[in-house]
């Protein structure tokens, strides 16, 4: 077993209404960032976990997303995995 860092990004699915994104878009426009076309607001979750290898870590993270980290009715997720040096801070 070795230690892995899973970087999980959860974001509203394309067709799903994203009020938060709309509010941030308006805020950015109000601040003069007129070039901004669209904003979607999701969340980023770092998970440190033990796994045999990158594949297993990724599979477990996907299970976590399906059951808790994402609401798959309205959100999609992406998982990236990287090895963690023992004792290193995330």
């Amino acid at each position: 077993m070795s230690l892995w860092l899973g970087r999980v990004t959860v974001i509203p699915k394309p067709s799903v209404n994203d009020p938060q994104g709309l509010a941030v878009l308006d805020g950015l426009h109000a601040l003069g960032f007129s070039e901004v076309e669209q904003v979607r607001v999701g969340r980023h979750i770092d998970v440190r976990l033990d796994a045999e290898g990158a594949e297993e870590a990724e599979a477990r993270l996907c299970q976590m997303c399906e059951t808790l980290l994402a609401n798959t009715l309205i959100e999609s997720y992406e998982v990236q995995v990287q090895p963690v040096q023992e004792g290193a801070a995330v």
Binding site: V16, N17, P19
Partner: peptide, 10 residues
């Protein structure tokens, strides 16, 4: 179909 997401602010 797509779940409706409410926007109480709007």
């Amino acid at each position: 179909g797509v779940i409706q997401v409410g926007n109480p602010f709007l």
